[in-house]
Nucleic acid binder design. Sequence first.
DNA 1: TGAAATGTTGGGGCG
DNA 2: ACGCCCCAACATTTC
Length: 502
Amino acid sequence: MGLQTDLRPGVAICWFRADLRLNDQPAFAAACRYEKLLPVFVHPAAGKSEVGGASRWWLHHSLSALEEELNAQSSRLIHLRGDPLKVILELHKKLDGSTNPLAAVFWNRRYEPQSVARDREAKKRLQELGLHAESFGGSVLQEPWNGGKDDGSPYQVFSAFYRAASKRGVDLDILSVPQSVPPLPQFPQLASSGRGKGSLADEISLEEAKLLPRAPLSWADGFAKHWKPGAKAAQTQLATFVKKGLRSYSETRNNPGLEPAGTSRLSPHLHFGELSPRQVLAAVVQETGDWRQQKNESVQTFCKELFWREFAHHLLFHFPKTPEEPLRPAFQKFPWRKDARGFSAWKKGQTGYPIVDAGMRELWATGWMHNRVRMIVGSFLTKDLLLSWRDGAEWFWDTLVDADLANNTLGWQWISGCGADAAPYFRVFNPVLQGEKFDPEGVYVRRWCPELSALGKKWIHRPWEAPESEKKKVGWGERYPAPCLDHRQAKVRALQAFEKTK
DNA sequence: TGAAATGTTGGGGCG
DNA sequence: ACGCCCCAACATTTC
């Protein structure tokens, strides 16, 4: 509290989006320099979903956590609903003429094409009204327009992008990440009754928000066993990973069976901005020293992963059509198949290839899949089943708690061979060999395909080759399906299809 | 952040 | 002791 003479007059809105934290949050910090702070989250209008089902589960809990943090400091989070510009303009109207008129609106930039267009329009309209409207970076380490080549054109190959990024470095002040939340200004007096529903035309409760915009998600109920959304949990996870997982990362990250996990599991926290990439990098630097001159292979590998995230945003910004179209034009005419049964088997984890099925079931059960396995199931969908990468991207979009347009698009275009720095199309993952290489004991498969758990490790990734007695023991062909296709033949078919892009 | 075929090398069994 | 063959291990090429 104390004297607030240095505060600017009026109300500042902090428009929360994918930045659900209070620390190292530029828009929030800017809004805290005003007399009154109005934290706002805008849900999409009824029937208009912007995120997939699993993400809505996460978002709900993350917003609860954010709300709790704000409440703990005598503030609130207002949930609104509808077109963001429209509802903010309504707020403006409502506050106009009151003792605390709206003075400023702050937000942190997003880089999805629709966001970019919407935010540009919003900024223009708000500024026309004489309001201070300002956006900040903070969800990425470097703005996507800054990461390009000297002539301004974007990178399309990761190694070059990364080389340039490490040569450039990340500004030192970027790494002096704020360690504490700024003091919170008062919550403004709102017209009419003040608290709760009805005080604003479009205000809705969190309980209502949870149900938007579609039916309740009974499938997501199990996620709580595996995840704790919210900024506090994100910080805990980061600290734990840096202390316990970072130094062995390059060894452990490819083994999906490890418990606790060999990966950071930070992706959903990063996606929702419960954690900034600067905080992640700062934690790594604090623990191990400068990321650029890092000798430790694990630290290097982990930092590289952070920059894959940067690369994805760089690409999405410069190639805004890539969520729908392959970056490599030759793939426009790729003869993707339609195969409802195959697609369904893939989604349900019933392809008959254990590592693929384990991954798809992990996804369904937890809202997340280990990255090594994402590559395996992605290769299987696009190269074995020969279904479009967009089908896969759509499924991931709906089922991943970390679904992120930039990362999802890059990942699927990469694995299917039609994108930036893509694996050449003839790189077809062999699900048996990948399983044996990265899940050598079959721990991961047994966890998610328990009907196979009685199989020894010799057969766990190729149950169809097991002796009859072993097959019988686990009900192979009944409780667990025979392979939905022959990988060898599928690979030949994929290579033939690839010829048509030439 | 492939897999599989093909080529090369070198150790060791064996006549 | 020597050459021959086998084959694992590794390297290179090809898709």
